[in-house]
């Protein structure tokens, strides 16, 4: 079975899985894990969007 994802959906899925693992492994309490996981997800996704705009500006 093969699938095809867009660049953005592939990057967002990557962010979801990496954030879950980072949240669980890097913090001690459940509340901190959730907060850190959400923070990582926001940073990953924000970084992707920012990099996308930077590339758009460079291409112009």
């Amino acid at each position: 079975m093969t699938i095809q994802l867009s660049h953005f959906s592939a990057a967002v899925l990557f962010a979801v899985f990496a954030s879950v693992v980072f949240g669980i492994t890097q913090r001690n309490s459940t509340r901190e894990m959730v907060r850190y996981g959400l923070y990582c997800f926001a940073m990953f996704t924000g970084g992707v969007i920012l990099a996308g705009w930077v590339m758009w500006l460079l291409r112009r």
């Binding site: 079975m1 093969t2 699938i3 095809q4 994802l5 592939a10 899925l13 990557f14 979801v16 899985f17 879950v20 693992v21």
Partner: peptide, 13 residues
Amino acid sequence: GSICTMFALGLAL
């Protein structure tokens, strides 16, 4: 779930 899904998606891609 996260690691196995990521690995499976990698193969599917």
